[in-house]
């Protein structure tokens, strides 16, 4: 378990709303899509924090808002004690040296007209490393670390397979020696045998450079394998944050429970009791009142329809946002089982 003292990143009540324009001239804000709606969490130094959720839950938006690739609507993001939400563009640019991102689709995120060498080198130019020889040295060094050969550097992205392109993406993120890497679905476009190569590489790099990862994924088994702590998102909100073992052994939120039970079983003879959720994820432009999960929840109570639950710590490193745990008895049961 990680020490609690070294908080690298603290996200507090982060919100990102996208306006839906309408009206005669298309300049009136009709509605807002609440992609990220009041998310708070902490990431410790050296750990891997996973964000899981289904499509449309706001996990990618959260990742991009932290890096201010999207401007947050509200809330603060403290990186090493400094609120990045208030930095001006110049300061932000310098800070991005410390926070880098690896994107999902290695086919779309690399410029097809640039050679691999130039793609990897570009951040160094941006961050003002003016000595060409030094840049070259760094590129070779990083390429070696991610398993690319020097000869491959003079090629173009289309000549590489998906797994290798993702290595290029990782090298590009790594070259500025960041402290935090936000990995947005880094392996979901890859085949399983390649996926494991990339995950192993990411783990090696983490050990070698003491990296901290925010690992965004929809794949629950990959997240379990790779992350230390995990936040489960649903409709723009964090519904549960916990240590991975605590979460997978005993999910508290009904949504987390259903999500975990929906995983296909790893063996044909091992059928499990599956909770099949009714219906689909509601639209984030028109979320249900109260707890946003209540229309699909099997243990929905009256209070869930009107009042929005808040994230509360139930036991060590395990917080959940659900009215089920409002009553003291229920709370004691949930907390007592572990102790």
């Amino acid at each position: 378990m990680k020490e609690r003292e070294n908080v690298l990143l603290k996200v507090d009540n982060l919100k990102k709303y996208f306006p839906i324009k309408g009206g005669v001239f298309g300049n009136k804000t009709m509605k807002q899509v609440k992609a990220v709606d009041g998310v708070s969490f902490e990431v410790m130094e050296g750990e891997t924090f996973g964000i899981v959720g289904e499509s449309g839950c706001g996990k990618s938006t959260a990742g991009r808002t932290i890096l201010r690739l999207l401007e947050p609507t509200e809330g603060s993001i403290y990186f090493q004690g400094k609120n990045i939400a208030e930095l001006n563009p110049n300061e932000m640019r310098r800070l991005r040296k410390d926070i880098q991102i690896v994107f999902q689709d290695p086919f779309a995120s690399l410029n097809p007209r640039m050679k691999v060498r130039d793609i990897i080198e570009e951040p160094l130019i941006n961050f003002g490393v003016s000595d060409r020889r030094e840049r070259e040295k760094r590129v070779l060094e990083v390429a070696d670390q991610v398993g690319l050969t020097a000869a491959q550097l003079s090629r173009f992205p289309h000549e590489f397979s998906g797994g290798q392109r993702q290595r290029i993406g990782i090298a590009r993120a790594l070259i500025s020696k960041p402290k935090l890497i936000i990995a947005d679905e880094p392996v979901s476009a890859l085949d399983v045998s390649i996926q494991s190569q990339v995950l192993n590489l990411m783990r090696d790099l983490q050990k070698e450079f003491g990296l901290t990862y925010i690992f965004i994924s929809h794949d629950l088994s990959v997240v379990k394998h790779f992350c230390d702590r995990i936040g489960v998102m649903y409709l723009g909100k964090m519904v549960e944050i916990a240590d991975k073992n605590s979460l997978y052994d005993e999910p508290l939120h009904p949504y987390a429970e259903a999500l975990l039970s929906a995983l296909p079983s790893p063996h044909p003879l091992q059928m499990k009791n599956r909770i099949i959720l009714k219906g689909d994820v509601p639209s984030p432009s028109n979320p249900p009142s109260g707890c946003t999960f209540h229309p699909r929840c099997s243990s929905c109570m009256d209070i869930c329809k009107t009042e929005r639950p808040s994230l509360q710590v139930i036991r060590d490193n395990h917080a959940v946002s659900c009215h089920l745990y409002d009553s003291p008895e229920k709370l004691a049961v949930a907390a007592g089982e572990l102790k």
Binding site: V192, S193, I194, Q195, S196, Q197, L199, N200, R203, L220, S221, V222, K224, H225, F226, Y248, L263, P266
Partner: peptide
């Protein structure tokens, strides 16, 4: 090479 949800391994075989 599949991550196993029940068993914890540091590295996946690939």
């Amino acid at each position: 090479s599949l991550p196993d949800i029940q068993e914890q391994k540091e590295y996946l075989s690939s």
